[in-house]
Each structure stands twice: as structure tokens, then as C-alpha cells.
Computed example of a mutant assay.
Amino acid sequence: MTNRLRVITVAVVLAVAIAVAAAYAMGGHRPAAHRAATGTPSATARPGTPAGKGGVCQSGLPGQAKDTLALIAKGGPYPYRSDGIVFDNREGRLPRQAGGYYHEYTVVTPGSGDRGARRIVTGGPGEEYWTQDHYASFQRIDTGC
């Protein structure tokens, strides 16, 4: 390979890496079409079980989310090594808190070859949030419905 070709190849690889990192930082996560193709259900309040503004009834979550909530309640063991790590809330989509306040947990996505996009993020006691789109949006989990 000539030096010029090598320089061009490196430049292209760097440009692609920068574009991917920028898309991720701007919230360019898995599109809705991918979630539909992998069977990720929608987490919306069921008729007759309102969860309040922007919330979701715990009973309306997929079974895997309920499994994750049960693991959180008993302190594990968790299926992924990164479960329980600090969630930094860099995008500011959750209420602002001191660093280390929030922690994230994987919600298994059937058919996904990796951790998937679904998470539960916890804060203080009884404060739990659901995201099915890898932190692009959150709903507070209402355990009373």
C-alpha cells in the first residue's frame, strides 16, 4: 500500500469514527423501526390505569422490565457486568441531582445480540425511570397502578 493510500484510508476511518461518536452524543440511538423489528413493546399506560403526566404504570411494562425491577429490589445478581453503574444524566432528561445519584440497569431485549436499548434508571428510594430508547426519553415508573 502506498503512503498516500494509507493516509486516505486512515482519514476515512477517522471521519467515520467521528461521525458515529457525534451521532451518539446527539442522541442518534436505535430508530423506532429497529425497536419494532426486535419486538420491543411500547411502555404506555393502559386505559383505565393512568400513571400521571409522562409516567408509565409498572403493570404496563414488559415482563423483562418487571424482572429487572425485582432484581434491583433484591440487590442482584444482575445479568450484565455494567448493571448498577452510575448513570450521569449528561443529557439532563432526568431531574438534576448530584453526581452518583442515578444508577442504570439493563432490561433484557429478546432477540437482541447485545444489551439492547431498554434500561431502568433508579434514583432515591422509590424513584425509578423506564427508557426503551437508550436514554432518548424517560418515563417515571408508577408502582401504584
Rank of each mutant, 00 (worst) to 15 (best):
A33P: 02
G39R: 13
A37D: 13
G92P: 00
A70K: 15
P77L: 00
T106G: 04
D67I: 03
T143F: 12
E128G: 04
I141C: 10
V121E: 08
A37K: 13
T122Q: 10
I72P: 04
V86D: 01
G60I: 03
Q64G: 08
R46Q: 15
L69D: 10
P125G: 08
A25F: 04
G144Y: 10
A33F: 10
Y135P: 02
K66F: 11
I141M: 08
P77C: 01
A65Q: 09
I141V: 15
R93M: 10
F138D: 11
P77W: 04
R90T: 00
G113Y: 05
A73P: 11
A23Y: 12
G84A: 01
P79E: 06
H134W: 10
K74E: 02
R81I: 07
G28S: 00
T9K: 08
P125N: 09
V107W: 00
Y129N: 13
Y78M: 03
M26Y: 12
T131F: 09
D142N: 15
E127Y: 13
L69T: 14
T109E: 15
P41K: 12
L69W: 09
V56Y: 05
Q64V: 03
A32C: 05
G92V: 06
E104R: 07
R119Q: 00
E91Q: 02
I8N: 10
P95T: 14
N89D: 01
Y135N: 05
S137F: 06
R119C: 01
I8E: 14
G63Y: 10
R90D: 02
L61P: 04
H103S: 03
V108R: 15
G27P: 01
R90Y: 02
T9S: 14
G123Q: 06
Y102T: 03
G116P: 02
V20H: 04
Q64I: 03
A65K: 07
D114C: 06
P110Y: 05
A23F: 06
T9E: 07
A32Y: 08
Y101D: 08
G55A: 14
G116A: 01
T122E: 06
G111M: 05
T109L: 15
G92M: 02
A17W: 07
T40W: 11
W130L: 10
P79H: 07
G116N: 01
M1C: 15
A51N: 08
I141R: 05
P79K: 09
A117M: 11
A32S: 12
A19P: 13
H103Y: 12
G124T: 09
R96E: 14
R30Q: 09
T131K: 13
R119I: 02
V108G: 07
R81Y: 11
Q139F: 13
G76V: 00
S82Q: 09
D83S: 05
K53M: 08
K53Y: 05
G124Y: 08
T143W: 07
I120T: 06
K53H: 09
I85K: 07
G60H: 00
Q97V: 06
Q132C: 06
T44N: 14
V10I: 05
P47T: 10
A98F: 01
R81C: 03
D83T: 03
L14D: 07
K66Q: 15
P77A: 00
T2D: 14
G76W: 01
Q139H: 13
G55H: 10
E91V: 06
E91W: 00
G48M: 12
T9W: 11
T49Y: 12
V107N: 12
